[in-house]
Protein backbone atom coordinates (compact mmCIF):
# COMPACT_ATOMS: atom_id res chain seq x y z
CA UNK A 1 0.00 0.00 0.00
CA UNK A 2 1.17 3.50 -0.78
CA UNK A 3 -0.11 6.90 0.14
CA UNK A 4 -0.63 8.60 -3.16
CA UNK A 5 -1.04 12.32 -3.69
CA UNK A 6 -2.02 13.84 -6.98
CA UNK A 7 -4.32 16.40 -8.50
CA UNK A 8 -7.70 15.16 -9.66
CA UNK A 9 -10.11 17.40 -11.52
CA UNK A 10 -8.43 20.46 -10.12
CA UNK A 11 -8.30 19.34 -6.51
CA UNK A 12 -5.48 17.90 -4.48
CA UNK A 13 -6.37 14.40 -3.42
CA UNK A 14 -4.67 11.66 -1.52
CA UNK A 15 -5.53 8.02 -1.45
CA UNK A 16 -4.20 4.75 -0.06
CA UNK A 17 -3.75 2.19 -2.79
CA UNK A 18 -1.61 -0.58 -4.17
CA UNK A 19 0.97 0.86 -6.55
CA UNK A 20 0.16 -1.56 -9.36
CA UNK A 21 -3.50 -0.60 -9.57
CA UNK A 22 -4.35 0.89 -12.94
CA UNK A 23 -5.38 4.53 -13.03
CA UNK A 24 -8.75 3.55 -14.51
CA UNK A 25 -9.50 1.31 -11.52
CA UNK A 26 -8.36 3.97 -9.11
CA UNK A 27 -10.70 6.52 -10.67
CA UNK A 28 -13.68 4.20 -10.84
CA UNK A 29 -13.28 2.31 -7.60
CA UNK A 30 -11.65 4.76 -5.21
CA UNK A 31 -13.14 8.00 -6.46
CA UNK A 32 -16.42 6.76 -7.94
CA UNK A 33 -15.61 8.52 -11.21
CA UNK A 34 -17.30 6.00 -13.46
CA UNK A 35 -17.40 8.26 -16.50
CA UNK A 36 -14.06 6.73 -17.46
CA UNK A 37 -14.86 3.47 -19.27
CA UNK A 38 -12.98 0.28 -19.99
CA UNK A 39 -13.33 -1.33 -23.40
CA UNK A 40 -10.17 -3.34 -23.91
CA UNK A 41 -7.63 -2.82 -21.14
CA UNK A 42 -4.75 -2.80 -23.63
CA UNK A 43 -4.65 0.74 -24.97
CA UNK A 44 -6.57 0.07 -28.17
CA UNK A 45 -10.03 1.52 -27.69
CA UNK A 46 -9.55 4.83 -25.91
CA UNK A 47 -12.73 4.50 -23.84
CA UNK A 48 -10.54 5.00 -20.77
CA UNK A 49 -8.96 8.23 -22.04
CA UNK A 50 -8.24 10.86 -19.39
CA UNK A 51 -6.05 13.92 -19.39
CA UNK A 52 -2.73 13.55 -17.60
CA UNK A 53 -0.88 16.84 -17.33
CA UNK A 54 -3.19 18.10 -20.07
CA UNK A 55 -2.39 15.29 -22.47
CA UNK A 56 -4.73 12.49 -23.48
CA UNK A 57 -3.59 9.11 -22.15
CA UNK A 58 -5.11 5.65 -21.78
CA UNK A 59 -5.84 5.28 -18.09
CA UNK A 60 -5.72 1.49 -18.48
CA UNK A 61 -1.99 1.73 -19.18
CA UNK A 62 -1.00 4.06 -16.35
CA UNK A 63 -0.33 2.59 -12.92
CA UNK A 64 -1.19 4.35 -9.69
CA UNK A 65 2.43 4.23 -8.58
CA UNK A 66 3.41 6.31 -11.59
CA UNK A 67 1.10 9.16 -10.70
CA UNK A 68 2.84 11.04 -7.91
CA UNK A 69 2.28 14.74 -8.48
CA UNK A 70 0.46 14.32 -11.76
CA UNK A 71 -2.65 16.27 -12.64
CA UNK A 72 -5.51 14.11 -13.90
CA UNK A 73 -8.72 15.31 -15.45
CA UNK A 74 -11.72 13.15 -16.22
CA UNK A 75 -14.96 13.70 -18.09
CA UNK A 76 -16.66 14.65 -14.83
CA UNK A 77 -14.66 17.88 -14.67
CA UNK A 78 -15.83 19.34 -17.95
CA UNK A 79 -19.32 20.62 -17.28
CA UNK A 80 -19.98 23.20 -14.63
CA UNK A 81 -23.18 22.00 -13.05
CA UNK A 82 -25.83 22.12 -15.72
CA UNK A 83 -23.58 24.20 -17.97
CA UNK A 84 -22.10 21.88 -20.54
CA UNK A 85 -18.71 22.52 -22.06
CA UNK A 86 -19.15 23.55 -25.72
CA UNK A 87 -17.73 20.20 -26.79
CA UNK A 88 -20.36 18.36 -24.80
CA UNK A 89 -23.12 20.57 -26.13
CA UNK A 90 -21.94 20.18 -29.69
CA UNK A 91 -21.71 16.41 -29.32
CA UNK A 92 -25.40 16.46 -28.42
CA UNK A 93 -26.45 18.94 -31.06
CA UNK A 94 -24.66 17.09 -33.85
CA UNK A 95 -25.87 13.62 -32.95
CA UNK A 96 -22.36 12.46 -32.02
CA UNK A 97 -23.63 10.27 -29.21
CA UNK A 98 -25.31 6.94 -29.76
CA UNK A 99 -24.63 4.34 -27.11
CA UNK A 100 -22.37 6.83 -25.39
CA UNK A 101 -19.77 4.36 -24.21
CA UNK A 102 -16.96 5.92 -26.24
CA UNK A 103 -18.20 9.44 -25.58
CA UNK A 104 -16.26 10.45 -22.45
CA UNK A 105 -12.96 9.33 -23.96
CA UNK A 106 -13.82 10.84 -27.28
CA UNK A 107 -14.65 14.20 -25.74
CA UNK A 108 -11.42 14.24 -23.75
CA UNK A 109 -9.35 13.43 -26.83
CA UNK A 110 -11.10 16.28 -28.61
CA UNK A 111 -10.50 18.53 -25.64
CA UNK A 112 -6.78 17.80 -25.65
CA UNK A 113 -6.67 18.41 -29.40
CA UNK A 114 -8.32 21.82 -29.19
CA UNK A 115 -6.10 22.73 -26.29
CA UNK A 116 -3.05 22.18 -28.46
CA UNK A 117 -4.43 23.10 -31.83
CA UNK A 118 -7.42 25.47 -31.78
CA UNK A 119 -8.06 25.21 -35.53
CA UNK A 120 -7.60 21.61 -36.56
CA UNK A 121 -8.37 20.52 -40.09
CA UNK A 122 -10.26 17.33 -40.89
CA UNK A 123 -7.14 15.16 -41.02
CA UNK A 124 -5.93 16.48 -37.69
CA UNK A 125 -9.30 15.76 -36.11
CA UNK A 126 -9.25 12.22 -37.49
CA UNK A 127 -5.74 11.69 -36.17
CA UNK A 128 -6.68 13.03 -32.75
CA UNK A 129 -9.52 10.55 -32.31
CA UNK A 130 -7.98 7.59 -34.14
CA UNK A 131 -7.21 6.05 -30.75
CA UNK A 132 -10.85 6.22 -29.72
CA UNK A 133 -12.89 3.43 -31.22
CA UNK A 134 -16.56 4.04 -31.77
CA UNK A 135 -18.66 1.19 -33.08
CA UNK A 136 -21.91 3.15 -33.35
CA UNK A 137 -21.48 6.46 -35.09
CA UNK A 138 -19.05 6.02 -37.96
CA UNK A 139 -17.25 9.09 -36.49
CA UNK A 140 -18.79 11.61 -38.88
CA UNK A 141 -21.00 13.44 -36.41
CA UNK A 142 -18.22 13.31 -33.83
CA UNK A 143 -15.88 15.08 -36.22
CA UNK A 144 -18.58 17.63 -37.04
CA UNK A 145 -18.99 18.37 -33.33
CA UNK A 146 -15.29 18.93 -32.85
CA UNK A 147 -15.10 21.21 -35.86
CA UNK A 148 -18.12 23.17 -34.69
CA UNK A 149 -16.60 23.59 -31.24
CA UNK A 150 -13.35 24.83 -32.69
CA UNK A 151 -15.19 27.38 -34.80
CA UNK A 152 -17.29 28.47 -31.87
CA UNK A 153 -14.33 28.91 -29.53
CA UNK A 154 -12.32 30.70 -32.17
CA UNK A 155 -15.07 33.18 -32.95
CA UNK A 156 -15.42 33.88 -29.23
CA UNK A 157 -11.73 34.53 -28.84
CA UNK A 158 -11.64 37.02 -31.65
Amino acid sequence: MINLKFKLNGEKVSVKTEAGVRLIDLLRNNFGLTGTKEGCGVGECGACTVLMNKKAVNSCLVLAGQLAGASIETIESLAEGEMLHPLQRNFLEHGAVQCGYCTPGMILSAYALLDENPSPDEEEIKEAIAGNLCRCTGYKQIMDSIKATADELNSKNK
Binding site: L33, T34, G35, E76, L84, Q88, L92, E93, G100
Partner: peptide, 21 residues
Protein backbone atom coordinates in the same frame (compact mmCIF):
# COMPACT_ATOMS: atom_id res chain seq x y z
CA UNK B 1 -36.29 17.66 -37.36
CA UNK B 2 -33.08 17.46 -35.40
CA UNK B 3 -33.86 16.69 -31.77
CA UNK B 4 -31.25 16.18 -29.12
CA UNK B 5 -31.07 12.70 -27.65
CA UNK B 6 -33.24 12.01 -24.71
CA UNK B 7 -30.38 10.45 -22.74
CA UNK B 8 -27.70 12.77 -24.04
CA UNK B 9 -26.85 14.95 -21.07
CA UNK B 10 -25.90 12.02 -18.90
CA UNK B 11 -23.83 10.50 -21.64
CA UNK B 12 -21.68 13.54 -22.35
CA UNK B 13 -21.05 14.29 -18.71
CA UNK B 14 -20.05 10.77 -17.75
CA UNK B 15 -22.94 10.37 -15.34
CA UNK B 16 -24.87 7.82 -17.42
CA UNK B 17 -24.79 4.52 -15.56
CA UNK B 18 -23.64 1.60 -17.62
CA UNK B 19 -23.81 -1.91 -16.22
CA UNK B 20 -20.31 -2.03 -14.79
CA UNK B 21 -20.78 1.36 -13.10
Amino acid sequence: RPVIREDGFEKVTGSAKFADD
